[in-house]
Design a protein around this nucleic acid. Sequence first.
RNA 1: GGUCCCGUAGCUCAGCUGGAUAGAGCAUCGGAUUUCUAAUCCGACGGUCACAGGUUCGAAUCCUGUCGGGAUCACCA
Length: 581
Amino acid sequence: MNIFRHFETRIEAALNALVAEGTLPSGLDFSRIAVEPPRDASHGDLSTNAAMVLSKPAGMNPRALAEKLVEKLKSEAAVTEVTIAGPGFINLRLTSEIWLGGILDVLAAGAAYGASTLGAGKNVNVEYVSANPTGPMHVGHVRGAVFGDALANLLEKVGYRVCREYYINDAGGQIEVLARSAFMRYREALGETITIPEGLYPGDYLVPVGVALAKTHGDKLLKAPDTEWLPVVRDTTMAMMMDLIRGDLAVLGIVHEVFFSERTLHQNGAVEAVLKLLDEKGLIYTGVLERPKGDASEDWEERPQTLFRSTQFGDDQDRALKKSDGSWTYFAPDIAYHYDKFQRGFTTLIDVWGADHSGYIKRVKAAVAAITDNQAEIDVKVCQMVRLFRDGEPFRMSKRAGDFITLRDVVDEVGKDAVRFMMLTRKNDASLDFDFAKVMEQSRDNPVFYVQYAHARICSVLRNAAEQGIDIAEASLAKADLSLLKDEAELALVKQMGAFPRAIEQAAQAHEPHRIAFALNDLAASFHGLWNKGKDEPGLRFILADNRDVTIARLTLIRAAALVLSAGLGVLGVKPAEEMR
RNA sequence: GGUCCCGUAGCUCAGCUGGAUAGAGCAUCGGAUUUCUAAUCCGACGGUCACAGGUUCGAAUCCUGUCGGGAUCACCA
């Protein structure tokens, strides 16, 4: 049971009762009412702003309204005290039984703890990574990949049906460049000595592609004209690059359900179709864009182009759909792509992009609004840059060919779990510092370690208990007398666990998985604090030789805490550590 | 120049979609260990929430403007 959600409904019931007896007018909007933990725990267990929010529409003084509401809430089960504070906050204090009961919920739910039906099975499409298929993924892709994946997990956790999607940019000019680069490697594989010309991809990840081409085609392609070998080489290369990328993503534990090819949109006429749709709405014209202000470059020239009236949907400028030579811009198939998502039944779209694409948000939102007649909502999450540090020193990747840090480099050095957690310790729209040393550091300062250590510590205590012959089977723990948990720090931990489902829901609604990382850090802090309290007061230790019942109750408590930690880590895609070594 | 993001303690950052006396970690200072792993914990110190207006019962949070930092810009993808 989500205690906050439970009391939300109880408060609404109380308000409805007040409406029924004429104390409050009907037709009030309850949507802004919040039930939350008070900022200061001394105020109580729960706090609601109901009286303040409803005061104006009800035409009542907030405190007077609060008093009426308090009358109703006093009789509520599990409520021990109701007070009015400040401008009209209503603070509730609950029995410790109801909080302690939450421990059983955790045990019953296990790693699924915090799951809810908020999303009601609604389809959500999360598009993330979508890196150009021209080589292995580099470190710059990692944050968006982890963010998108954790967000997808989070939405699934609260009951959405999530489609994880990757848009393959396999139609642009860079694909031909890639194919030509692979062709060089093909010649190399046939025994030629090659030098990769300027402008082609020099990376040696194409060497296996050349070998594969040579194996399949022998020297047949050498004699063929461009028009013949190019499609062959392109398709083979693309397939191998996507395998490479899927492998990279797998290293991070990421698996997409749908890989959507841009090229298919050109081939099946979807781009023309969506342009026709926009044209019928009168949103397309031929015109000339103005020179961007502040652009003093020489090579600017006026060009008549096919333009989309994105300014009608909040964009700053109309946007080109065709280049001056009549071919499509990148934007045109992208509209078709988003329309395709809509046609596949998605009315909630989330795109995860890097900071370098932020200038693209308005036009895509405009396009989605236009083609779906505002029937779909799209949220574009931009992940700001990751700055890399080694031992506190920033370092940049040089642009020189081949000299970039790959996703695999990072994962090989610090491990999948550390990378994933660290990437989620900032909100997406703030830039993030990633220090290789800090991620591996075993200290309070490193949240990756700190949270893992809390979990491992609990596992360690449970192992010790088992060695001492204490039955820690789930079924036995479920029968513990939890009323023996009386210490303030114990109850604080229990309340924090009880608030966890709420944290999950709010993170999901805000599309902000980083909040889970912070909630876990807080939970770990409460546990470490409790553990250490047992040092000062031996009577508070988890395992007491002379009191089996209290021991069982405490082991149940920390077992539940471990489950909550692993539930949260699960959302982040991080495996909880059983021990630290 | 336009657009987007950021600006909160000396440093790195949270701040629950507008709530109560703005919170953590690091650093500094003072404490706790024959350990259920001290790889941890407890306490103290530390703030004009960049600045100026506005909206209202109430603003770090929303709006306008200014300043500072970053990203980005028309036929690349």
